[in-house]
Nucleic acid binder design. Sequence first.
DNA 1: AGCCATTATATGGCTAGCAATCTATCTAGG
DNA 2: CCTAGATAGATTGCTAGCCATATAATGGCT
Lengths: 161, 161
Amino acid sequence: MAESSDDPLRLANQVCFPLYAATNLLQRLYRPLLAPLGLTYSQYLVMLILWERAPVTVGEIGSCLHLDNGTLTPLLKRMERGGFITRSRDPRDERRVLVAPTPQGLELRTQALRIPEDLAQRIALGTGEIDTLRNSVVSLVHHLADDLDRGKEGSGGAEAR
Amino acid sequence: MAESSDDPLRLANQVCFPLYAATNLLQRLYRPLLAPLGLTYSQYLVMLILWERAPVTVGEIGSCLHLDNGTLTPLLKRMERGGFITRSRDPRDERRVLVAPTPQGLELRTQALRIPEDLAQRIALGTGEIDTLRNSVVSLVHHLADDLDRGKEGSGGAEAR
DNA sequence: AGCCATTATATGGCTAGCAATCTATCTAGG
DNA sequence: CCTAGATAGATTGCTAGCCATATAATGGCT
């Protein structure tokens, strides 16, 4: 089996698979913590943005979270139905939709404060490890986002091979 | 804003969000590489298992990939329709379904060999960095999987291999 | 043999995610 | 003005992912 430890198609040698698995598992872990608030994980991410600054446009949310607006439009509609946010056309530019938290959405923040603690306990990694991990993944995200943006824009783009 | 850099609800301080974003971006990156083979990313992961060993049961795939069988059943049916795999009841135990690659599914492996290389270029991290990253995420996955299993069983259910 | 708890997979109903396409609005150039 | 291109969101159609539940087969116990 000299080959199997180098085999690039071996599941155990994949880099992306652990990221994929961790993300699925994390969402499962978040689910019961967020259910009492009535939010899913993606909706929680949207609230994190709105608690920092509002109103924001759909496009701004999309570029913060690296999500497509085919994903966001229905997601935001569900959040509006749930009474967490309002959506309204920007009077300055009717193409834009401004998203802002409702009073109920703002209050949720207090309940949300315990979530990062609860989670940190279950992740059970040391703070240093977590920081290292976050840093490497953040830099990966930047690489990937740049790469994908380049691919999208590049009419005259370098096609690298 | 002395507070904002400690604020546990600040998007930039989240650990899980970068994992989530990286996973979405990676799937977008994989999509055009896998499309010529007719596979999605999850289907590719299933093929990685089947190229290593076959036949396997649905449950074994689920515990390798940390996926639920409510996810796998329809996914495997699509792969069967696509001609990549066969699904058949185990004659020894009719509850089980054995999954194995078709000849076409086996041949795909040759084309798949270039995918990890293509990807490595675009991820553009040094090998050392990648190893570090993989190791931390793998250990995170173990923590999370154990944690979730413990919550599910409640009493002593020995499992795993 | 017959029943019961367990195990393996399947189904239904929901949310999410993406690519491709469409619609409405805005901005420039004439 | 008015039309051409660009921009912001919405829509469509697909795959994937989860939970809760249902069905079917197995094994043990009496």
